[in-house]
Simulated assay, not measured.
Amino acid sequence: MKKLEKIDLFNFDLEIGKQKPYLPLFYQTFGQPIGTAPVVVVNHALTGNSNVTGENGWWNDLIGENKIIDTNHFTILAFNIPGNGYDENFGNLISDYRYFTLRDMAKIFWKGLDFLQISNVFAVIGGSLGGAIAWEMTILEPNKIQNLIPIATDWKATDWVIANVLIQDQILNNSDDPIADARLHAMLLYRTPKSINLRFQRKKTNEIFHIENWLINHGIKLKNRFRLSAYKLMNHLLKTNDITRGRKDFLSIIKEIPTNIQIVSVNTDYFFTADENRETYQNLKSVKENVFYSEINSIHGHDAFLIEFNQLAQILEPIFNKQKQQNYVNA
């Protein structure tokens, strides 16, 4: 794993009116040194982290040498959401998780970018929770981001998302085995009946169905690498997603944003549904020209953004290859 770097933040004002005297912000960079190439900020999802490429990189199929997001041509920057537990001591956890909102995290990321003296970002990209933070980052600093690429996410938490966050929160606060049990529920939300039925086909070993083993193993794996307070925080942030909170209505906000917006949804997503994303796109088109919509076709549901790499690469190729060509011209 590439070495983690840390930025110390002091006296950070939370959206709810409280202040955190100290917050460590951990991050990793890949590719070209800061200040020498266009910057791509990659926001991780609920159980992800800043290790986006290289050894154990969770987006190795998209990010790396000669990949779509090419480390030969871009500076890749990935922050860890404070409290996710992925840091030098796997500590610095947040117990008062309900104090934080997704907007707080977006502001923290901008604090990090300011510290690194990055004033212009070629693209902010993220899936699920990371994509929601990308939306909020764009609203906060619309003139600093050229391309917003939210994947399998939305600019708001729908009632459906809020309901599932509540179920997860109840499990995390009441179960005897909270992380594992919450993961059982989450995995069924992130996949589809067709995906699971085709994969397991009612097979069993020693009277235990393979689907049961698969779910139990996912619960064990997450429990071994994720802290309870971190899971509570990441889950809670999902329901605080709303770029219009305390602001104008959605279209009025978007009118003022010059950023190119490339929405990517998954046709079978049961969490951030494609219907919601299509509606967002149609509304955006009424006030903004440089907005685009693409859809990943998959039986795998929400998690397709971590599975269908070929389709995602094809969607992203025009954005990143155009910039690479510009890099060659300016070299």
Rank of each mutant, 00 (worst) to 15 (best):
K3A: 11
K3Q: 14
E5S: 11
E5V: 12
E5M: 10
F10V: 09
L14I: 15
L23N: 13
P24R: 12
Y27M: 07
Y27H: 06
F30W: 12
P33Y: 15
P33H: 14
G35W: 06
T36L: 12
A37M: 14
P38R: 06
H44R: 01
L46I: 15
T47P: 09
N49R: 08
N49T: 05
S50C: 04
N51T: 04
V52F: 01
G54V: 13
E55V: 13
W59C: 04
W59H: 08
N60G: 02
L62E: 02
H73P: 02
T75K: 11
A78G: 01
F79Q: 07
G83L: 13
N84Q: 15
G85A: 10
G85C: 08
Y86L: 10
F90H: 09
G91I: 07
I94Q: 14
I94Y: 15
S95C: 00
D104P: 02
M105W: 09
A106D: 09
K107C: 10
W110P: 05
L113F: 03
D114Y: 05
Q117N: 09
Q117G: 04
I118F: 09
S119G: 05
S119D: 05
V121E: 02
A123Q: 10
I125Q: 14
G126N: 10
G130K: 11
A132N: 04
A132F: 08
A134S: 14
M137T: 14
I139D: 00
L140I: 15
W155C: 00
K156P: 01
A157Y: 07
W160C: 00
A163P: 05
A163H: 08
N164M: 06
V165F: 04
L166T: 02
I167G: 03
I167M: 07
Q168T: 02
I171D: 10
L172C: 00
N173G: 08
S175W: 14
D177E: 01
I179K: 11
R183F: 04
M187S: 12
K194R: 12
K194T: 14
S195F: 15
S195T: 15
N197F: 13
K204A: 12
T205H: 03
F209H: 14
H210M: 15
W214N: 00
I216D: 00
N217K: 15
H218Y: 14
G219H: 10
G219P: 01
I220T: 08
I220K: 03
K221S: 03
K223S: 08
N224E: 11
M234Y: 10
M234T: 12
T240C: 08
K248H: 05
L251C: 05
S252R: 06
I253H: 03
E256Y: 10
E256T: 15
E256L: 07
Q262M: 07
Q262N: 01
I263W: 09
V266T: 00
V266W: 06
N267E: 02
Y270D: 08
Y270C: 07
F271V: 13
T273N: 03
D275H: 08
N283A: 07
S286L: 03
K288T: 07
N290P: 12
V291S: 01
Y293E: 00
I296L: 08
I299N: 02
G301Y: 05
G301Q: 07
H302M: 04
D303V: 10
A304Q: 01
L306M: 04
L306Y: 06
I307M: 05
I307K: 04
Q311I: 06
A313Q: 06
P318T: 01
F320G: 01
F320I: 03
K324V: 15
N327L: 14
Y328W: 15
A331D: 11
